[in-house]
């Protein structure tokens, strides 16, 4: 993967605030994700984990603060103006181009139901990156093989189990050759016996040095795979650090209370 060779994928989150209809969901979140590392974000529901993830690839626009990928602002461009600088919102076309550097995996898969598994993977590299279809198709088949679905390329999403759908969704995200993969509770919509097959694929990706931010409730996965665990509560980062520190020796009461409930 290109992500390994050039090691792009440094994500910086600086003082991000976000409110919905007057209710503040994020109260100034700071976070740095180093290239090639895995960050697992834990926290009770409503703590702002998903909003943070969706702000990173600008599916949500932060009210304050900024997000940068490899030093490049997400959603804005800095331009000099009368001796100082101003931030210009990116036109939609450029924003869409910037988004292709992030791969996003949704809790509810959001595969395109009218397309086959293969076409789901092929769609964006062809239409967003303008790559030749034949080349993309060959790569898509490899990606499907990598997530263990080589023989299901021609199936439609509704003919697949939840775990298979989520694996197609991961292949779809990988096909863009993103610098960073964002996972929004990738196993929360799955039957318990299907969780394992999806986590296995994500763990494999982590081993190849893909930069990832994973919002999840799977503590075991966090312990095994994460380089950095971030615990969020009420729109703030309460605690962050290596898994053995945050999971085994939490410093804050809220982290302890949360871990006591989910473990």
């Amino acid at each position: 993967m290109t992500a390994v060779e050039a090691r792009p994928g440094r994500v910086e989150v600086h003082g991000v605030h976000k409110s919905y209809a007057g209710v503040e969901v994020l109260h100034g979140v700071d976070l740095v994700v180093e290239p090639g590392t895995v960050t697992v974000v834990l926290g009770p529901s409503g703590s702002g984990k998903s909003t943070l993830l969706r702000s990173i690839n600008h599916l949500e626009k932060a009210d304050r603060g900024f997000i940068a990928l490899d030093g490049e602002l997400v959603g804005y461009r800095r331009k000099p103006h009368r001796g100082t600088d101003r931030l210009h919102e990116l036109p939609e076309k450029e924003l869409l181009r910037q988004r292709t550097r992030f791969g996003f995996v949704f809790q509810s898969f959001n595969l395109f139901p009218h397309l086959t598994a293969l076409d789901n993977v092929v769609e964006a590299p062809v239409s967003a990156q303008g790559r030749p279809r034949a080349e993309v198709e060959a790569e898509a088949r490899e990606l499907l093989a990598r997530v263990g679905l080589a023989d299901r390329a021609d199936a439609h999403p509704r003919q697949l189990s939840g775990g298979q759908q989520q694996r197609v969704a991961i292949a779809r995200a990988l096909a863009m050759r993103p610098a960073v993969l964002l996972f929004d509770e990738p196993t929360s919509a799955l039957d318990p016996e299907l969780v394992g097959e999806v986590l296995e694929v994500i763990t494999d990706l982590a081993r190849t040095g893909t930069t990832m931010i994973v919002v999840t409730h799977e503590i075991g996965f966090a312990r095994e795979v994460a380089d950095q665990v971030v615990f969020m509560d009420a729109g703030r980062v309460v605690e962050q650090g290596p898994p053995e520190q945050v999971l085994d020796d939490p410093q804050h009461d809220r982290t302890r209370a949360f871990l006591a409930r989910v473990l």
Partner: peptide, 15 residues
């Protein structure tokens, strides 16, 4: 979710 998935993949608006 379909709109979001399309947007997150950077698929051009018309497409």
């Amino acid at each position: 979710g379909q709109h979001e998935a399309a947007a997150s993949l950077g698929i051009p608006r018309r497409r």
